[in-house]
Simulated assay, not measured.
Amino acid sequence: MSATLQELLAQRAAIEKQIASAQREEREGALTKIRALMTEYGLTPADLAAKPGTARAAGGTPSRSTGKVAPKFRNAATGETWTGRGLQPKWLKSALEGGAKLEDFAIQA
């Protein structure tokens, strides 16, 4: 028995309504779960927008840039400095290869 085009279109419309209804119900259920978890853990929409691993995502205050970092090492001969962050500068690397110790270049506070 072959269904007519009109019957098939009617079936499709009914199925699309069922799909839309099921999607709406699942979405509402998901939102209910999310709201409950947010209440349970004291989360806000801002916490959801924060990147994982940041202070705000961890529930703390957002970190602020403090500007320049004070140098921790100085070449007494040239006055060049290094903060201790990133790659070691050439002057320090060559001095260390020559037998010097990192502590020899430490800036005393």
Results as ranks from 00 to 15, higher is better:
residue 21 S to Y: 06
residue 21 S to D: 14
residue 10 A to P: 00
residue 24 R to A: 14
residue 63 S to R: 13
residue 57 A to G: 07
residue 60 G to E: 07
residue 17 K to T: 10
residue 29 G to V: 07
residue 54 T to A: 01
residue 63 S to E: 11
residue 19 I to Q: 05
residue 43 L to G: 07
residue 38 M to E: 12
residue 11 Q to C: 07
residue 56 R to N: 03
residue 56 R to H: 06
residue 17 K to M: 12
residue 17 K to W: 00
residue 59 G to K: 07
residue 39 T to N: 10
residue 47 D to V: 06
residue 29 G to L: 11
residue 37 L to T: 07
residue 18 Q to C: 06
residue 45 P to M: 05
residue 43 L to P: 04
residue 14 A to H: 11
residue 49 A to D: 09
residue 16 E to Y: 03
residue 39 T to C: 01
residue 28 E to N: 08
residue 20 A to Y: 05
residue 33 K to L: 15
residue 41 Y to H: 15
residue 58 A to I: 01
residue 25 E to D: 15
residue 33 K to E: 15
residue 63 S to W: 10
residue 31 L to R: 13
residue 36 A to P: 00
residue 9 L to D: 09
residue 46 A to F: 01
residue 9 L to I: 11
residue 40 E to P: 00
residue 60 G to T: 08
residue 59 G to V: 06
residue 45 P to R: 01
residue 51 K to Y: 02
residue 48 L to M: 15
residue 45 P to T: 02
residue 13 A to F: 03
residue 15 I to P: 02
residue 63 S to H: 09
residue 10 A to L: 12
residue 39 T to K: 13
residue 46 A to S: 06
residue 52 P to Y: 05
residue 60 G to R: 14
residue 36 A to V: 00
residue 49 A to C: 01
residue 14 A to G: 07
residue 26 E to Y: 04
residue 26 E to Q: 13
residue 30 A to L: 15
residue 10 A to F: 09
residue 50 A to K: 06
residue 54 T to K: 06
residue 45 P to G: 04
residue 41 Y to N: 08
residue 48 L to E: 08
residue 22 A to S: 08
residue 33 K to S: 12
residue 35 R to T: 12
residue 38 M to F: 03
residue 28 E to P: 01
residue 61 T to E: 13
residue 32 T to K: 14
residue 54 T to I: 08
residue 32 T to L: 11
residue 15 I to L: 15
residue 48 L to A: 14
residue 17 K to N: 10
residue 25 E to H: 13
residue 62 P to W: 00
residue 9 L to V: 11
residue 43 L to D: 03
residue 14 A to N: 11
residue 51 K to F: 04
residue 42 G to Q: 02
residue 57 A to K: 03
residue 16 E to L: 15
residue 39 T to Q: 13
residue 22 A to N: 07
residue 28 E to L: 14
residue 53 G to T: 02
residue 29 G to W: 04
residue 40 E to F: 07
residue 54 T to M: 04
residue 43 L to R: 03
residue 19 I to T: 05
residue 45 P to S: 02
residue 49 A to F: 05
residue 55 A to S: 13
residue 19 I to G: 00
residue 34 I to P: 04
residue 43 L to V: 03
residue 54 T to V: 06
residue 53 G to K: 12
residue 33 K to Y: 06
residue 55 A to N: 10
residue 54 T to E: 01
residue 18 Q to P: 00
residue 20 A to R: 14
residue 25 E to M: 11
residue 10 A to C: 08
residue 20 A to L: 11
residue 26 E to G: 02
residue 37 L to Q: 10
residue 28 E to H: 04
residue 22 A to V: 14
residue 56 R to W: 00
residue 61 T to R: 14
residue 57 A to E: 02
residue 55 A to V: 02
residue 30 A to Q: 12
residue 32 T to H: 07
residue 9 L to M: 12
residue 47 D to R: 14
residue 47 D to I: 05
residue 56 R to L: 15
residue 41 Y to F: 15
residue 49 A to P: 00
residue 59 G to C: 04
residue 61 T to L: 12
residue 33 K to I: 13
residue 55 A to Y: 04
residue 56 R to T: 03
residue 56 R to C: 00
residue 63 S to C: 10
residue 38 M to W: 00
residue 47 D to E: 10
residue 35 R to H: 09
residue 28 E to G: 04
residue 11 Q to N: 12
residue 34 I to E: 08
residue 49 A to G: 06
residue 29 G to K: 13
residue 27 R to S: 10
residue 24 R to N: 10
residue 60 G to N: 09
